[in-house]
């Protein structure tokens, strides 16, 4: 080794040390907050541990078997997917429509942008309380309006058939603005001269313009919005906790609420671990789809 290489090697070593030093706090926290908890969670799922109890035993796959035969858990899973099935098309279609219409506005664009984005910034718990009041059978303005129109009262939150769709409606209310902003970003990345060329080529009305230019070119954005919306909807918790607490008759039991109850209310820690792992599996599936979708984004 030549003498001139020595200071260079020393500098490289120093750089490695600084790099490691800079990354160390983050690395330790990553271990403490993600890696270790995940391992603990996996371990717990094979025990009968309950918080506060000193001893535990290995029970193998018992918890898993219990979870998959548990009527309550299965219902919460079905309810969650039902919720996603309403919120997903509702918020995606609505926000796409709003985005396309808002995008063409010039003077009123920021006016609509502000209004539709408002729910995203507001505290959902507080707004859920307000919604609860709005939907109140006798005091709520919505039922008052329905009465006036001659429809009679609708027990939005106390009818088991209506409770979950009502929560989903609030979910849509919260997500439309967020998705709209994502779609607007996608729309502004479509070159304007494509619209101009199509106008000259005879693409005259809005429906044609949407079908020939907007929709195909917005495809990647749409897939992406679908995935993020699915994940967000799958994590529904706040409205359930405030407005229905899983009721009426378990109609709004959702997966996160079930995990919360098992883990932090009944303190059946081991069982809650299993539910958490099931929850994680779903989220990872969505995320894998998301990565796949992101790869496809560069496709044109």
């Amino acid at each position: 080794m030549s003498a001139a290489a020595l200071p260079f090697r020393r500098q490289l070593l120093w750089q490695k040390l600084t790099g490691a030093g800079f990354a160390l706090p983050a690395f330790l926290l990553l271990l403490a907050l993600h890696v270790v908890p995940l391992l603990v969670l996996a371990g717990l799922s094979f025990t009968d541990y309950e918080l506060g109890v000193v001893t535990f035993e290995w029970v193998g796959l018992d918890n898993y078997a219990q979870a998959f035969s548990d009527e309550v858990f299965r219902r919460s899973l079905v309810n969650t997917l039902y919720y996603v099935a309403i919120v997903l098309p509702g918020s995606v279609i609505l926000s796409l429509l709003v985005a396309v219409l808002v995008h063409q506005r010039k003077r009123t664009r920021s006016f609509y942008e502000i209004i539709y984005f408002l729910p995203v910034t507001s505290t959902l718990i507080a707004m859920a309380t307000v919604w609860q009041f709005l939907l109140h059978p006798s005091l709520g303005v919505i039922n008052a309006a329905l009465r006036k129109l001659g429809f009679g009262e609708v027990p939005f939150l106390s009818d088991p058939d209506l409770a979950l769709p009502t929560l989903a409606m609030i979910g849509i209310w919260q997500l439309v603005g967020f998705n709209m902003i994502l779609f607007l970003a996608g729309l502004s990345s479509i070159p304007r001269d494509l619209y101009e060329a199509s106008a000259i080529d005879g693409v005259g009305n809005g429906v044609d313009r949407f079908l020939t230019i907007t929709w195909p070119l917005l495809g990647p954005t749409t897939l992406f919005v679908i995935v993020t919306t699915s994940i967000t909807a799958f994590k529904v918790f706040d409205t359930v906790a405030v407005m229905t607490k899983g009721g009426p008759q378990g109609a709004t039991e959702v997966i996160l609420y079930a995990i919360y109850l098992e883990g932090f209310y009944y303190f059946r820690t081991a069982y809650a671990s299993v539910l958490t792992l099931v929850f994680l599996t779903f989220v990872v599936i969505f995320s894998v789809i998301q990565t796949f979708v992101l790869d496809r984004r560069t496709h044109y």
């Binding site: 070159p191 001269d193 494509l194």
Partner: peptide
């Protein structure tokens, strides 16, 4: 920019 439709 030619404004060709990229998806067609």
């Amino acid at each position: 920019s030619y404004a060709l439709y990229p998806h067609m």
